[in-house]
Amino acid sequence: MFVRTYARLFVAGFRRQSTYRLAALGGLVANTTFGLLKVALLFAAVDAAGGQLSGYDVGAMSAYIWISQGLLGSINLFGRTDMAVRIRSGDVAVDFLRPVDVHLATIATEVGRSVFALLPRGLPSVAIGAFVVGMSLPDDPAAYVLGALSIVLGIVVSATTVYLVAATGFWLVETRGVEILYMVVSGFFAGLFVPIRLFPDWLHAAATATPFPSMMMYPVDVISGRVDGAESAGLVGLQVFWLATTIAAGQLATRAGRRRLEVQGG
């Protein structure tokens, strides 16, 4: 029963997304264009560094670029969510009347949408990258299993983290400031334009103290085979840690927010 409810929400999120096929095509054009520009710059950087830049050779850099481009449609790096709108408008009070956990239901819907986006955006991006530019991928099938797990974890961590942004709306009248801060920091620390390995140490340390690398950087490192087995497992472990942390925070915030709504009469 429990599983079926969330499975249905997941499917609903999936279906809704499939109606935007033309937008998806436009998204693919944008993805590919940005990908090719990144290729030009980062490949040149690898060359300039003598073929090896912070552990990335050209093949690994290509894998980084195209997998991260492919994940772009599935990872929320904007900070805006439907949930934030519902909390602001007070519609969330209706959600609390339903016999589901509002927090988990929101995340199930969000993850459904994101997983669907892998089909029109994720796979073609990777395919274009592999075909046009070429990339190095691991030979070991186990790396793919771990990579797939890592990608799913990344998508879920994105949903659970951005939910926390929306949840600030229970207390703040205007959440736009939090959303903007999230937008600016998340892309940078998730490794959207530059792999965080290239950061100076202090900046790298700052990035790893946030859940953002778990959304994109770690899955990319795991599936591209830039890191080996033990290190991969470590990164996935970090993702699990951030998943647990953000879910716990989300549960607490939702309960406290609900109490606040009930006290104030929503």
Binding site: L22, A30, L37, A40, L41
Partner: peptide, 27 residues
């Protein structure tokens, strides 16, 4: 373009990104 904002963004905002790069690295 119906729902074409993302396609044009590829060249408007992609263009901004390109403008900050040294064109010598382009193919």
């Amino acid at each position: 373009l119906i729902d074409g904002a993302e396609a044009t963004n590829a060249f408007v905002y992609g263009g901004r990104y390109a403008a900050t790069q040294p064109a010598a690295v382009w193919d």
